[in-house]
Each structure stands twice: as structure tokens, then as C-alpha cells.
């Protein structure tokens, strides 16, 4: 049977991997190419790169990173951050990415999901949702978590699926970088309603929390950043912890 995927997430700013807390206060965490190679050796099932500055200039830097990584790392690579059009997506795919994560642009123009799925196939299109608890529900935010769109995150996930997204990358803004654990309630809600795979993201501070996102949140894949970047654990550590508890991992 298919395994739960453990995916390191590299937030890239100006060619460097950084990590913030609740999308702010970023600090340096390493070189993207070196980290990608390291995580590949440790058994990463996939690698996600997010261009957090997402400007024209940083896109070029990101393309260069993807070019280099895809020459020596042979696991799926997902790239996101500021992708606004089919042309942008084509550019990252041509550099060696396998999937494109689209976030803000899809909320402004939901047809982008449909167009991208038609051109590259659903398997290429990851709908990335930055969700934040607002009252009794979660809203989808844009502009790096600064702006509330008022759109219900759960509705948006289901709509994205209908439009042709192949996967949902669910980021909890409340948990991001806090190490207080994944938003299990949000994750479980989306997993329950969506029929496509859901990647839980934001908040991993311990191995127990990773386990909880799989067993309670029911996530199909887990995104991890801080826990790995600061060398607290390796991916092999994460996997052996999960394996001992009966979770199927590669």
C-alpha cells in the first residue's frame, strides 16, 4: 500500500532557506541545494520549495535552485510561491520541478487551477491553502498570510478539487513555526471532505505531533520544516519513530 509521505519544506528567500513563525520573523536555515541533497539522503519522499518573497527577481533565483537540485535529487520536487499563470508554471516545470503549488493567484483567478490541470494534468497541480482560524471557521489568506480573503478554507479546498487540483497543501497560519503541533481539527475536516490527498503543514515541533497529524488528522502526507532545518531530527528519525508505531513509511 501507498505510504505516508514525509516532505521537508524549504522556504526560500533570496536563494537562502529561511524559517519564520506564523509567516513572520524569518531566520536563516541553510542553503537550498545542500539541504535538498541532505534530505534526499535522509529519505525525503518529496521536497517542497516555496519562494516566500515571490518577486520577478527571486523567481530567477528559485529556477536556478530547482535546476541544480533536479540534476542530483531524484524524488518529486514541488515549487510554489508567486506562480500566477500557466507560463509561470511551465517555467518551473521546465527547470525540473514536477508539481506546482498555487496559492494566492488561484484565489484571485480560480480558473488558473483548471487551465493548469488541462495543460499539465491534475497530478502537477497542488492547491496550497494558507488557512487561519477566524471565528468558528477557517479563512483562506493571501499575500503571505497577511490578507484575509473571507473565503472559507474548507469550501475553497473542495472547490479547488472540483477545478482540477490533484492535491491540497494545507498550511495552518496559526501553527506555522510555533512548534505547537499541526492544526488537527482543520486537517481532519479537510481530509474528511476532500477526495484528493491532503498534505498537512505548519506546527511540527515534536515527533508525537507528526504522528498525531497522521493518526488523528488523517493526513496523507506531512510537511516538516523547523524540526529538520535546525538538525533536531533527521527524516530517518521521523520515519523510524512512525514505523515503530505502525505507520507505513518508505
Amino acid at each position: 500500500m501507498v505510504t505516508v509521505r514525509i516532505i521537508p519544506c524549504l522556504d526560500v528567500e533570496d536563494g537562502k532557506v529561511v524559517k519564520g513563525t506564523r509567516f513572520k520573523d524569518v531566520r536563516y536555515a541553510g542553503d537550498p541545494v545542500e539541504l535538498a541533497r541532505l534530505y534526499d539522503e535522509q529519505g525525503a519522499d518529496e521536497i517542497v520549495f516555496l519562494d516566500i518573497s515571490a518577486t520577478h527577481r527571486t523567481r530567477k533565483i528559485m529556477i536556478d535552485v530547482v535546476e541544480k537540485v533536479s540534476e542530483c535529487v531524484f524524488v518529486p520536487l514541488t515549487v510554489g510561491g508567486g506562480l500566477c499563470s500557466v507560463t509561470d508554471i511551465r517555467e518551473v516545470l521546465s527547470a525540473g520541478a514536477d508539481k506546482a503549488a498555487i496559492c494566492s493567484a488561484a484565489l484571485t483567478n480560480p480558473n488558473l487551477i483548471m487551465e493548469a490541470a488541462a495543460v499539465f494534468g491534475s497530478q502537477c497541480v497542488v492547491l496550497s491553502i494558507d488557512a487561519k482560524k477566524t471565528g468558528n471557521s477557517w479563512h483562506a489568506f493571501v499575500e503571505g498570510g497577511r490578507k484575509d480573503t473571507g473565503v472559507d478554507a474548507l469550501d475553497w479546498a473542495l472547490r479547488g478539487e472540483k477545478l482540477g487540483a490533484g492535491e491540497i497543501l494545507l498550511n495552518s497560519i496559526d501553527s506555522d513555526g510555533t512548534r505547537s503541533g499541526y492544526d488537527l481539527e482543520l486537517t481532519r475536516l479537510v481530509v474528511k471532505r476532500a477526495t484528493i490527498p491532503v498534505i498537512a503543514s505548519g506546527g511540527a515541533g515534536s515527533l508525537e505531533q507528526v504522528y498525531a497529524a497522521i493518526t488523528i488528522g488523517k493526513a496523507d502526507a506531512i510537511l516538516i520544516a523547523s524540526l529538520l532545518h535546525y538538525r533536531e531530527y533527521t527524516i530517518a528519525d521521523v520515519k523510524s519513530y512512525l514505523r515503530e508505531r505502525g505507520v507505513r513509511v518508505r
Binding site: V2, Q123, G166
Partner: peptide, 10 residues
Amino acid sequence: EKKVPQIGWN
């Protein structure tokens, strides 16, 4: 039988 697409390692 399961989620579609199948995405992952098998």
C-alpha cells in the same frame, strides 16, 4: 477503492 489520484510511494 481509495483516494484518487494515488500520489506517493508504493
